[in-house]
Design a protein around this nucleic acid. Structure first.
Length: 133
DNA sequence: CGCTTGACCGGAA
DNA sequence: ATTCCGGCCAAGC
């Protein structure tokens, strides 16, 4: 079996909560979000490893207004959202100071968000927002 | 119900 | 570098 409806809602809520913690000018990948979350009970490790990133994508598809959805990109630093929506995502990120390479990729070393592990944000010495403030 | 598609990812051609 | 595939999920039709 997959996720019960309850577990699915719970998982989506946690995804949104985590994405809300990503500051402007930073990005995180679907897979990173999945790694930072605890696998729901009743989900096999293998299943989680194989599909959790996709579940994050599902969650983002229907996320509430206050979730900065544009800050979630794929593991290659590219925008996954197709078409006009993808163009919009890139524009929003550029407005936040995120830069794209000539081939349309984001450098995680510069713009990747290293989020909280185990509960609380331990933002070591996060180098602020390069292009802003 | 069954079938198709997908805001994923890592590994294999 | 690029395309293809398995994973056996979730949502939409």
């Amino acid at each position: 079996m997959g996720l019960s409806n309850y577990q699915k809602d719970e998982f989506y809520n946690r995804v949104w909560k985590l994405v809300r913690s990503v500051p402007p000018g930073k990005v995180i990948s679907y897979g990173q979000v999945a790694e930072l979350l605890e696998p729901p009970p009743d989900v096999l490790q293998d299943t989680y490893r194989a599909f959790a990133a996709r579940w994050v994508g599902q969650a983002m598809r229907g996320c509430p207004e206050d979730v900065p959805w544009q800050r979630v990109v794929n593991a290659q630093g590219r925008i996954s959202l197709p078409g006009d929506a993808g163009d919009r995502q890139r524009r929003l990120l550029e407005e936040e100071g995120v830069r794209f390479s000539e081939s349309g990729r984001i450098d995680f070393h510069r713009f990747g968000w290293t989020a909280a592990r185990g509960g609380e944000p331990h933002e070591d010495s996060q180098p602020g927002l390069p292009g802003l403030a």
